[in-house]
Amino acid sequence: MADRYFTREQFIAKFPEEVILAADVYDRMTGSGFPEYALAEFDVYFIADRQEKLEKLAAFLTAVYGMTTKSISQQNGQWELETLSPKFPVDADNLLCWAIDLAIKGYEHDCRLDGYGTFAGADSKDFQDEAPARLAHYFELAMESYRQRNFGAAVINFTTAIRIFPENANSWYSRAIAKEEILLGAKAREDYDKAISLSPEFKEAYINRAVNKDEAGEYEAALLDYNKAIELDALNPMVYFNRGNTKQHLGDQAGACGDWKKAKDLGGEYAAAKLEAYCK
C-alpha cells in the first residue's frame, strides 16, 4: 500500500539483514562468554511514522508476547518504541527465530524493527529446568504460543522439548511448522528431515516437506515426497492436488490432470477449478 511507512519491498530487502544481525548478536554474546542456552532478556526497538502505530504494537507485544513497554518517544522526526522482552533461553537458532518473528510482527503493524541488545554475558547463570518431567510442559507452551501466533516462543519451547527428548519426531515436525510461519523455509526443511529420519512413515512430514521443496523450486524432490505420502495414505485428496501442481511445474500436464481428477474423485472439490482451466 502506498501509504505504508514500512513497505513490503522494504521488508523483503531487510529480511536477509535481520538473519545476519541475529548471527552477529549471538556471536558477540558467546564471544563475551555467554553460556549457550542460558536465559537472557533483550531491549528491543521499533520505529514508525506515527505514535499510534507503536502504541498498538506495544499493546500487542504486552498482551501476547509478555513484553514490557519502556518508552514511546519522538526522535529525529519519527517515533520509537523501546520494549523489554521476557527472559528466554538463547542459542543461535532461538535468537534468529525470535528476532525474525518480531520483525514480522513489526511489519504487520507498519513498524520496523530497529535493533535489540542485551547485557547478558559470562555471568549469566540462569537456565531453564530441563528435567524429563518438564517435557509435556514445554511442548504445551510451544503449542499455546503457536496458537497465539507467537512463533518465536513456539520455536524456543519446541527446542527445549527437543533438548529434553530429541527422539520425539513430532517435536521436530512441529518446530518446522513454526519456522515456516516466519519464512525460514531452509531451517524448517532441516527439521522435517530430522522428523522423517526418526519416523520414516511420518506422512504429514513428507507432505509438508514436499510443499517446502515445491516452494523452493525443487520439483523433482517434491514429487518423490508426494509419492511417499501417497504410498502411506492413498486417500488424501490434497496430496494428489498438490502433486498435480508439482507435475504441472515439471511440464507433465497429463500427469497433473490425472492427479487433480483423483483429488476431485476423493472429495477435493477445490480441484475442479484446475480441471476446468487446464484439462478440457
Rank of each mutant, 00 (worst) to 15 (best):
S124V: 10
A58Q: 09
Y107H: 14
W98L: 08
K105S: 01
D49T: 06
C111Y: 04
I47F: 07
T69G: 03
L96S: 06
G121H: 13
D43F: 10
K56P: 10
A48I: 03
E36A: 11
T69E: 15
G106I: 02
Y116V: 01
T62L: 06
I72E: 08
D101F: 02
T83H: 08
A103D: 02
F60C: 02
D43L: 07
D43M: 08
A103E: 02
G121R: 09
E41D: 07
H109C: 01
R112L: 13
T62D: 10
T118K: 08
S73I: 10
K105L: 04
T62K: 15
Y107G: 01
S85N: 02
V64G: 07
L39G: 01
C97K: 12
P35D: 04
P86T: 13
N94A: 08
E52C: 03
Q78V: 13
D43V: 07
G115N: 04
L61C: 05
L96C: 07
E80S: 10
L113I: 02
C111Q: 11
G106T: 03
E55A: 13
D49Q: 13
A120L: 12
L84R: 10
A99T: 01
K70T: 11
N76M: 09
G31V: 01
E41N: 12
Q128M: 06
L95N: 14
D49K: 12
F60V: 00
K105Q: 09
D114I: 02
D91C: 00
G106F: 03
A122M: 03
I47D: 13
L39T: 11
Y107E: 06
D43W: 02
Q74E: 15
